[in-house]
Structure formats: structure tokens, C-alpha cells
Design a protein around this nucleic acid. Sequence first.
DNA 1: CGTCCCGTTGATCCCTATCAAATGTAGTGG
DNA 2: CCACTACATTTGATAGGGATCAACGGGACG
Lengths: 237, 237
Amino acid sequence: MTASQVSLALIQQHTLFQDVPIEALRQILENGQVIRLSEGDTVFRQGDTASRFYVLLQGNLKIAQTTPSGEQVTVRHVNPGEIFGIARAMQRTTFPATSIVMRESLILSWPNNYWDTLLKLNPRFAQSTFETVGQRLQDAHSRIRELSTDEVEQRVAKALLRMVKDSGVNTTDGIEIGYPVTRQDIAELTGTTLHTVSRLLSNWKTKGLVISGRRRITITSIDGLQALINDPDQPNT
Amino acid sequence: MTASQVSLALIQQHTLFQDVPIEALRQILENGQVIRLSEGDTVFRQGDTASRFYVLLQGNLKIAQTTPSGEQVTVRHVNPGEIFGIARAMQRTTFPATSIVMRESLILSWPNNYWDTLLKLNPRFAQSTFETVGQRLQDAHSRIRELSTDEVEQRVAKALLRMVKDSGVNTTDGIEIGYPVTRQDIAELTGTTLHTVSRLLSNWKTKGLVISGRRRITITSIDGLQALINDPDQPNT
DNA sequence: CGTCCCGTTGATCCCTATCAAATGTAGTGG
DNA sequence: CCACTACATTTGATAGGGATCAACGGGACG
């Protein structure tokens, strides 16, 4: 099986490319480029000239911004089937953030000038992309609201719930986040420090809500975490 | 001059409708509806069924989300010429936020089913809207970064600078924000409390950076505020 | 088996929310 | 025109959530 054939099987699974005739799909793939990247690699960096646009076929990425002082903030996660790095379609010449591979990923990309052709071959693409960006805008607004009004404990709980929702895998103990996560990662995602995240996880472990080891987190009680969000000042058992 | 003629003059000024033939513009206006709203009015409320989409012709709005506990968070401001309330174009059935009039405003709107017609009459509309949403997404990401890493003082300074940039009017003292702003408004915009904002403004007043009265803020030293952002731990003079 | 990460936990400090109360300002109706 | 009222602002006092500083423990990998 060639790389192209593997990609064909993968791309068909994603709603973004459903209803596209197999011949058009083949053509779309031939004009694109598939790369496999490992954990820690970057697809593009903040400030790079935006010459291509991307779809994540498999794996997980995070999109992060680096502040002038060097701190990193995770702006969002990218899940399989999602389009990303579409700066050019928004008339930007450079990428506003860096995309970092969280676990081995398969990435499909095209040069910017293929955008119009792609729209013709896949008419749903335009509307779908628009909806995706709209959805992201709403997610971003939700996070602004959370950062403005929630306490750290609730923000971290919400972040964990989102991660298991997007990429959870069932285990005998509960649902495990499907990629490596450090305390630092969660801190960058929730606007806090790795120390505070560590304390929270320790606390939750004693309450039986999570099991966590080095770069691994398993939620044993979704409801327990949910309760922390609903009743912020629950008495500590 | 009829309401329609007033609107025609206004709509032509905005880049969103430039290059649209006058006849098409007339037709677009006839199918739309113009309303004038006063300070404190709402155009639509969070949770309302999204049956129309809007363009702000004149005035200023804020888009706010109410948290389950009743606090309000300002998600963004809307300036003249901007499209807003396009939930339906993103396949949402309800509005995710409330739009509140900050000063008397003129608002143009169409029923959702006019969207496709509008696209035909104004081909640039689709791309323009896409870019607008993309820009907003980036603005939202910037705010996430700020809320995650900046101290309150820097966030408030940035908020003031944005407001004067968007809607500043020159006065003999400096640049005044062109609509009424309370300490509470700024607090909702920056994720802090009105007390902290009041203390900051008092402090800045003694430093000669701002002049502020009841619901009025004038920046006397843009550079001074900018310095607070660049050098977070400037010695207090 | 040593080294590099990652995680844990204690101690301390400080920014900012919260609580509280007084003062100031625009608008309104008699 | 003034008193009344509603709302905005200011400022003090206090408390507390988390950041910061510091040190140690532990598992993975070369």
C-alpha cells in the first residue's frame, strides 16, 4: 500500500471529504503532500511565511503562541480531520502561532494556490471551512469567558473533560487522554502554573476522580469532575 | 431624505460594500431593515433564535456573554461597518451572546434567507466575511494569551489603547473614547473588577496618562500607556 | 547506572478580589 | 431652581487564591 493509498483510506473517514467522488479525492491527494511527524516536531512556526494549508489526518497537535517574554500559551488543540494553518485564506501572510505535534501525526498539505481548485473539486469545502472557523471563534469566546470568571480548579477540570471528550480512550480504570500530557501542558492550556495543576491532580487523585502518572492522565469519574464545575464551592470530602 | 437614502450614504462608506453597483446597493437596502437603537438597548439576546443577520452602520455595540452565575463578560466590540450576529451562517440556530448598544446606533439587518442573494449581489461579501471572522478569531486568541499571561494593569492598558484606536476622537486634552465607558464596562472587558479598574485609572491620572470622569475617559499619553505594556515593572514615578 | 525530565510538596508572598462606606454627578420631577 | 434619586466613582481594610521560590523524589531512556 502506498502512502497515497493509506491517505485515501484516512481522508475518506473525515466528514470534511465525505461526498467527494473517489476520482476527485485521488486528484486532491496527488496535488497534496503527506508527511509524518513525531512528538515535539513543529509543522510551522509563529511568524513563518504561510505558503501552505493543512489537514490533520491522524494524531494530535496543539497550536501555541509564544509571548514576547517567552512564555507559551496553548491556543487550541487540533484533532484528526480538522483543517489548520489556513492563515493565507484569511489574507494573512504569516502564521500567527506555532503548531506542535503532541503524538505521532500524519499531515496532509497543499500549496496556497491549490485552495481555489480544491473549492471546485469539493464544493462543501468552503461552507465547511467557514463553519469550522465560526465554531473555533465560539470556542475561543468560551475560553475568554472561562479565563475571566472561572477559578483555576474549574478551568483545569473543563480542560480535562474536553481532552477526554475529543481524544479519550476507554481503559479498565476509566477514560484515558489519548496522547501524552504533562502538568506544564495543562498549565499552558488553562493559564496557570504546573505547580497548581500538580496540586489539583494530587487532590483529585485522593478523591478518586483521576489516576495520573508521568505524562498520562485517566479520568475515573467524569461526573466527579463535572460536579466541580457545577458547584464551585463543594465541601471537600 | 428617507431612511433608505440615509442608509445608502452610510453603507457606501464601508469597505464591505465598496465596489457594489449603486443599483445592487439599492436593492440590498430595500430587502433589509434599518433600525435605530439607543444606549442600553439590545439587538438580540443570548439564546434567541437567530433569524436575521446584521451590519452596524453607525454607533457602537458590545457583544457580551452572561455566565450561569449571572456575571457578564464582554466578548468583543462592534464598530461601524462590521457585520455581526451571523450565527445562522455558521449553522447555529441561536445567538451565543447578547449584543448591547453602547451609544445610539443605526443597524441594518436582513432575514437569514437573504444571505445567498446578498452573496450574489456582492461577490466580495463571502471572502470579506470569511476574513472578518478569521480576524476575530485571531483577536480572540490574542485575548486568551493576554488573560493567561498578562497582569491586570497591562490588560486594562491594552483595552484602553484598543478603544481609542477604534473609536477615539481628538480633543484638546488628548484622545477621548467615543462612547460612554464605565469602570464596570472595562472590568467586564478585561476580566477584573470595577474597583481594580478605578484604582488603576486613579493611579494613571496622577501620572498624567489619562483624564477620566463619569463614563468618560481621555488618554493624554498614548506612549505612557504603551510603556506600561512594554515594561511591566517600570518603577513608579 | 547515570542523567534528564517530570512530578510532588512545602513555605512564603503578593496581587487582586471582596467587603464596606463615603463622595460625586447627572437627571428628574415638583 | 432645588431636592431627590439613581447610578458611578473613589478609597480604605482585609483576606485569600495562586504564583513564586525552593528542594526533593521517581521513572524512563540512552
